[in-house]
């Protein structure tokens, strides 16, 4: 894979590699333009187009042979990042930045959700979609908010599609469900090609370039937390979030399974997940389970918490509590 991003003088913007194709081509195009003044003809356009195509081809070849995330060398990871950036540029004409922040030492993420505060607004659902670059049509949402009758937590009587004039409705409670980043994740066991695994900071991630789309993980998940790209995800270019992570919200392709990563692109930069920030009620608490002074630890130690389907032994790192 030729990576020409270190060509001098190309990156006026000070940004990284993702510009190289277009920029260098434009420069070449400019030189060709001088020639074309003398010789006429559309050779410049043709030359540009040909080189552009070969970029697509070499990217396709590179993507095809891309190795498993955990087996790639540092250089190969950089190439993979650059490829994704170039593809986003081609597809959406947006400069995105794909990072590969490693897990932070001494951190295991945990989540707590106060169901007496959740009012069913579904702000978290849309906040998540804006952050994580899910396909809009068909719509993929990592969070499901369930409406239940007060007095029971039986999921089989839940309403996923409640659409009342206002929420909260009297006599109802609301239970948002998303990936719980299980400590003993059945989805990881199910994957035939190790495309999904648990990171040292507890986040269950998917290598979207390795997934073969068998959907065994979706069958295995007791929380329906995984979604499949049934077709090429469509995102309006203006809505693409350019701050991405290789294992997180980078643009995905058709035919792969995707999931919530507690906003790995944010969490590893110390930011709170988008659902936490989107929630106006303060029902959502995110933090480091290994930090005894963290809010999440206070809740786990001082509130009456429960976990959904704890009996299945998946050890979810997502707790519900009430005031």
């Amino acid at each position: 894979m030729p990576v020409q991003n270190d060509a001098p003088g190309l990156d006026q913007s000070g940004k990284t590699h993702n510009h190289w194709t277009r920029r260098s081509l434009l420069k070449k195009g400019g030189l060709w333009g001088l020639f074309s003044l003398l010789f006429g003809g559309a050779s410049a356009v043709a030359a540009t187009a040909v080189t552009e195509d070969s970029g697509i081809l070499s990217d396709a070849i590179g993507a095809f042979f891309q190795n498993h995330y955990n087996r790639m060398t540092k250089d190969e990871v950089q190439e993979a990042l650059a490829r994704i950036e170039r593809r986003a540029k081609r597809t959406y004409d947006v400069d995105i930045e794909v990072s590969n922040d490693p897990p932070q030492p001494g951190v295991v993420y945990g989540y707590a959700l106060n169901i007496s505060k959740c009012k069913g607004y579904r702000k978290c659902v849309d906040g998540c979609i804006e952050e994580n670059n899910q396909g809009r049509d068909p719509q993929i949402a990592y969070i499901r908010v369930l409406e239940l009758d007060a007095g029971s937590l039986e999921l089989n009587r839940s309403d996923h599609y409640y659409d009342s004039e206002t929420v909260p409705q009297p006599g109802k409670i609301y239970l948002p469900i998303q990936c719980m980043q299980c400590d003993n994740p059945p989805c990881v066991k199910a994957c035939p090609v190790d495309a999904t695994w648990k990171e040292p900071d507890g986040i269950v991630v998917t290598d979207y370039d390795w997934c073969i789309g068998s959907r065994a993980c979706m069958t295995a998940c007791p929380y329906s937390a995984r979604q499949f790209n049934w077709t090429e995800p469509k995102i309006p270019a203006g809505e693409l979030n350019p701050h991405t992570h290789l294992l997180g919200n980078r643009p995905r392709e058709k035919g792969v399974v995707e999931k919530c990563t507690y906003c790995i692109q944010r969490a590893r930069k110390n930011r709170q997940p988008a659902c936490v920030e989107a929630c106006p009620t303060g029902a959502r608490i995110f933090g480091n389970l290994l930090d005894p002074k963290s809010e999440i630890r206070y809740i786990l130690e001082n509130k009456n918490v429960f976990r959904l389907k704890e009996d299945l032994g998946c050890e979810p790192k997502f707790w519900y509590y009430t005031d």
């Binding site: 009012k119 069913g120 607004y121 579904r122 702000k123 659902v125 849309d126 049509d137 068909p138 719509q139 949402a141 499901r144 009758d149 009587r157 309403d159 996923h160 599609y161 409640y162 659409d163 009342s164 004039e165 206002t166 929420v167 909260p168 409705q169 006599g171 049934w230 009620t281």
Partner: peptide
């Protein structure tokens, strides 16, 4: 805090709409 209108419910892929019927009243 006054009740507000919720955001839109999950959208179902076009060719699947007939498989998901409106929720039954369980109350």
């Amino acid at each position: 805090i006054a009740p507000i209108e919720p955001n839109a419910p999950p959208k179902i892929r076009g060719n699947l709409v007939r498989f998901s019927k409106p929720a039954v009243e369980h109350s």
